[in-house]
Amino acid sequence: MTTVKEDLRYAKTHEWVKVEGNVAWIGITDFAQDQLGDLVYAEAEPVGEEVEIDDLIGSVESVKMASDLFSPISGKIVESNESIEDEPEQINEDAFGTWFVKIEMSDPSQLDDLMDAAAYEKFCEEESA
């Protein structure tokens, strides 16, 4: 069974968001990594890029599937996790502990449009039904 984490916000495209001050840490959920299977490629967009909601912020690939990460929030990428390129398997091992990018938010009120853990859990149940 996959898990959700209580203190995070979630997007319908299976990204999680952790808020630290004005910065949003973003990764893919445990449900997403499980659906993709063993990850063999991961990449995050570089520091400095300005992104809007739904812009590309990273990519992951398993043996059979390729999937993109879309930004759940607008702002500027202030950190990009390069370690995922060398070790994409860490995302399978600890999806909620492996961030792709940190975004300095331009409009934190956008967080209100994301799901909380309970809503996301329900959303995943519906998706796998």
Binding site: G37, D38, V63, K64
Partner: peptide, 11 residues
Amino acid sequence: PVQYEGITEEV
């Protein structure tokens, strides 16, 4: 069945 435990280990 597309996979049981994982494609890599099955290959």
